[in-house]
Design a protein around this nucleic acid. Structure first.
Lengths: 248, 248
DNA sequence: CTCCGACATATTATATGATTATTATTCTCA
DNA sequence: TGAGAATAATAATCATATAATATGTCGGAG
């Protein structure tokens, strides 16, 4: 039961990437120009090496671009790599908007039913067992044994993995962060959004190899979530909006 | 009609990122350990600064991880950010496999019909015009006025943009590179894969606001592509496999 | 023999100064 | 007015030094 050794990610460079990433997505530099290399170093008390490496990482994620004499600048939002887990996390956590959450859910509505169909066609007994285990944990979480979000995530992750398609599996970290936000939100609005029953239907269909039913069941699940989000967007103020906390 | 000023991307750092990215995805370091910072500098004739910055960019894309004393290492393939345009491009161009192309097409088969449905529900006249223009260019390309791939890409891009959903729009560069490879391949196997007629059906449905029909038409289009790829995978050698060229 | 801590060591992480390349802006001159 | 030259600002690159951090090694206590 060894803890999987998580890389520390605890150095100046990664810290600066986090800070700058959050500042960028929250629009801190929409008005004023992005600081120059030297300014960044001074402002954050880091060496130029660290600064440059952080800027390069953000460039790799599409948030920044740099040219001599012109300086470093924030790229137009359309070029941001929303499918990068970090970028999506910064957006959802630091610049939460129902609009963005709705758009992401709209994409899940395309991906996950297809994933369920593939899983129904391909899942081997082990994969099905992992999905079933996710569901079991969701039920257990209802009894307080575990955080419900974690179990729900495990369920969806297991289905993505069961597709045997690397691109679906790749969406796992994205869906995880979004789900964490999404659940936190849908719970506040209406108790538990999608009941255990809906998840059971998905699992049954996959286990039975019924691709069509699995897809439809997953679609129903996510449609409900999307409707909740869109309803809330139409009636602002119904659920208290969580204020955007800024890094101290 | 000014050319959009494309950033030059013509410096040592980006060059090294390209080289290393290609080497990594082609499995160059599966056997031997990834070189140390100093070794990389010597091997590529770059200073430690550019070496480190290149490594950091690849780290941001999930290909590398570095820890003191342990050295830098290639991450397990499951952690690579396949949804990063660079990573996908390296894989498709330098380590082409029908398997990967099939998996990607499988994802397009989830995304693009959904995009077509959304486009049918939301597309304003301008957006429809842009889709129509893509189709017009495809027809013109048949007459030799333009490269067919470019026109086809414009068609798909316009639909993704018409969804008004940033995540769908984000898939544009990914689908572009893949489409470029995909078309090159499907053409070799069987002349033009999906005829103009299929594309016209998609456009008509979107213009008519018929979401269901648009989705089905797009689904049909991509199913045909996927079938071609899977058939070729089952009969290796039917179409001459393009050899993987290595950077000189 | 096993476990634990001190120490050595390799490697990345950080810091800093200097130099070069690139390019937007300004100036000069025809 | 316009073209070309000079200027200057900025990132890009290089070089070098020091710090931090894992990892292995070895000796000794139990």
């Amino acid at each position: 039961m060894a803890l999987t050794r998580i890389p520390r990610d605890h150095n100046l460079t990664y810290g600066l990437v986090e800070s700058l990433g959050q500042l960028i997505v929250t629009g801190e530099f929409d008005a004023k120009a992005f600081p120059t290399e030297g300014e960044l170093s001074r402002q954050h008390g880091t060496s130029r090496s660290v600064t440059r490496e952080a800027v390069k990482m953000l460039t790799a994620k599409g948030l920044l671009q740099a040219r001599p004499r012109q300086g470093t600048s924030v790229t137009p939002e359309a070029q941001w790599n929303l499918l990068d887990p970090d970028v999506l996390r910064w957006l959802l956590e630091r610049k939460f908007s129902l609009r963005l959450l709705a758009e992401f859910t709209e994409m899940r509505l395309a991906i996950e039913p297809a994933a369920a169909r593939l899983a129904a066609r391909r899942a081997d007994p082990d994969a099905v067992a992992r999905i079933r285990d996710g569901l079991r944990r969701m039920v257990a979480a209802g009894l307080g044994d575990e955080e419900p979000v974690t179990a729900d995530i495990a369920f969806h992750t297991a289905i993505l993995a069961a597709t045997g398609n690397r691109f679906y599996a790749q969406l796992d970290p994205l869906i995880n962060t979004a789900l964490r936000i999404s659940i936190r939100f849908t719970n506040r609005v209406k108790g538990r959004a999608a009941g255990i029953a809906g998840h059971e239907e998905v699992l049954d269909a996959i286990a039975a190899g019924d691709a069509e039913r699995a897809g439809l069941a997953m679609h129903a699940l996510l449609s409900e979530v999307l409707e909740l989000i869109e309803a809330a967007a139409a009636h602002p103020g119904a659920g208290a909006r969580r204020p955007v906390r800024r890094a101290s």
